[in-house]
């Protein structure tokens, strides 16, 4: 049975819990490329060098993904059941349109394989969340993610 969009699983990142250890990047690169190299991760954690707060950039598996719209080869698809947006490397021609179209540049160009690549949600068990000691990255529903983002924003402006 098809899940409603609000019940589809996404990553939820809480910067207040993040320690900036970047184990998520190491775990991601190992899962997807078989190497321990943060440069080859689909998630990136940035540390603000003034405030020392952390922020992660990762694919949000948008409800209406612009990367899908931008791809001239229909290499990017959104699974309507799971909600996950994935790139078929056999169809990708490496034009980088998706990397420019994405507002947060979640898809990136892999120089080694000459194709665009991005988070595939690890078949529902994302390595980045699994290896996050402080539970800064967790798996939750889209509705939960929106609620968390709204509460976080309201906390910041209140």
């Amino acid at each position: 049975m098809e899940k409603s969009k609000s019940e589809q699983l996404v990553l939820i990142y809480d910067p207040e819990r993040c320690t900036g250890c970047r184990y998520c990047e190491i775990a991601c690169s190992h899962k997807n490329f078989g190497i321990l190299n943060p440069e080859k991760s689909h998630i990136h954690v940035f540390i603000d060098d003034q405030k020392f707060t952390c922020e992660a950039i990762n694919c949000l598996h948008c409800e209406d993904p612009v990367c899908v719209a931008a791809c001239p080869e229909d290499a990017i698809t959104k699974d309507e059941t799971t909600g996950w947006v994935t790139i078929n490397p056999m169809k990708c021609i490496g034009c980088r349109s998706c990397t420019y179209a994405c507002p947060i540049a979640a898809s990136w160009f892999d120089e080694e394989h000459r194709v665009a690549t991005k988070c595939n949600f690890c078949d529902g068990d994302p390595n980045c969340a699994k290896y996050c000691s402080s539970q800064a990255i967790r798996v939750g529903t889209r509705a939960g993610a929106l609620e968390f983002a709204q509460s976080r924003y309201l906390r910041k402006v209140s």
Binding site: T19, G20, R22, I26, L36, N37, P38, I47, F52, C54
Partner: peptide, 14 residues
């Protein structure tokens, strides 16, 4: 404000 930040040991390995 920096107590929580990782010491860097994990990434020192890569």
């Amino acid at each position: 404000d920096i107590d929580q930040l990782c010491c860097g040991f994990p990434t020192s390995q890569v």
